[in-house]
Write a protein that binds this DNA or RNA. Sequence first.
DNA 1: CCACTTGAGTGGACCGTACCAGTTATCCTG
DNA 2: CAGGATAACTGGTACGGTCCACTCAAGTGG
Lengths: 238, 238
Amino acid sequence: MEQLVGPEPKYRQLQAVLADLVASELGPGERVPSERALMTRFRVSRATVRHAIDALERDGVLERRHGSGTYVAERRVTSRLHLASFSEDMARRGLDPSTRLLAAARVEADDALAAALAVAPGGPLARLERLRCADGRPMAYEVGCYPLARLPDLLEEDLTGSVYELLRQRYRRPPDGGEQLLWAEPASPRLARRLEVDAGAPLLVFQRTALSRGEPIEHTTSWYRADRYRISMELGPG
Amino acid sequence: MEQLVGPEPKYRQLQAVLADLVASELGPGERVPSERALMTRFRVSRATVRHAIDALERDGVLERRHGSGTYVAERRVTSRLHLASFSEDMARRGLDPSTRLLAAARVEADDALAAALAVAPGGPLARLERLRCADGRPMAYEVGCYPLARLPDLLEEDLTGSVYELLRQRYRRPPDGGEQLLWAEPASPRLARRLEVDAGAPLLVFQRTALSRGEPIEHTTSWYRADRYRISMELGPG
DNA sequence: CCACTTGAGTGGACCGTACCAGTTATCCTG
DNA sequence: CAGGATAACTGGTACGGTCCACTCAAGTGG
């Protein structure tokens, strides 16, 4: 009988324990202990157990079967897009990526950024403004913010290459998840000039928050030339 | 004080009631009744209220603020990457979907369509041209092709509702997977007129092939107004 | 007048219980 | 031995309650 203690909510701890169990011991299709078994084992209520499993089910880690049990999901995530850096994304498409660093500065987090990056308002951030090119021609304009609390001295590094590579190698913080909003908008005169398109030309806008080990480490907004970029995705049921 | 009765679970009914409330009466940023108010009003427990709100929050309809209240989310329509029909997609966020059938005809598959739908070139297809509206205003223009070999007499059915519902109920062919390409392009004069936007305004274009039991059953291209639609997606590792 | 305290109201996290509904293996019965 | 009833599981829905953390505005003291 284990104990769940600490500042973290019990359902989150239990969620982590179960995720760990799946990662280390159980294979796809195997059954996880029943909700009632888990509640006596961890001394929590069934509501707490269900709360933890809810989250894992939504993430596609577990799969409930009414009357039968809860199982490790068979196919890991059908509809996920890759969390790839610009460099990797371009390489995948057979294009040659390059980057022009337009600005790099230390700024203070406003409320929105603080919330997105889970830091205190006013906390130190690195703000990078970059022009991304493929085969030498502009592809995207990108503004990215990174929490310096978790990535000390980021501004002293070489920022013309892949920041993701830096996060992985230098900081041991591999991006492993995230969420992204996507919409389209017409190019403002300023963006049009930078991207070498006509003002008003459609741009694909990605606003992404990337996580590493559950903590936000990047918040970027990217404007892609719609005439040079498109994405493909797989769709899952329901 | 309302009543929630029927075969549907109470939390689902409450979810529908709230989605409806958002759609008909409340605007973005407005506050929804508190959880405690809802429980007395609908005579349900707080757990049930929270269950209902959980779902709406995940869909981006509502937004909770600890200590303050629950609010109608600011964002415009945000779609998750499910394989959902337009009707389901709109209903999920409390918008009222409607469809105007612009054309419905039997056509022969050209090479590209034949390949996409895995039928013989020249094989019979149903071609539907439809205008999709949300709350009475144009949201998307859609051209869809369906293989008549797998869906006999499709053109005799009622095509103003959800085709996905037809596929499921009438043909026992639930869409369960698919692939989709996404890009942006400026509205042509013709599309602009149909969608009631300015010519050149950015549109989000989806080109989707949906499968049922491994066989293609739909190939559609949809042009969405970028000012009314955006999507949200989760990112997995590399 | 401003800063501070305070309290009512909000969502967040739990607990324990009860009953329903679907699944499955076991144990009868024909 | 095959088949059906059954009982012991499983998850699903729902109830009630308790305490905590946070927000915000009204009230208070300097």
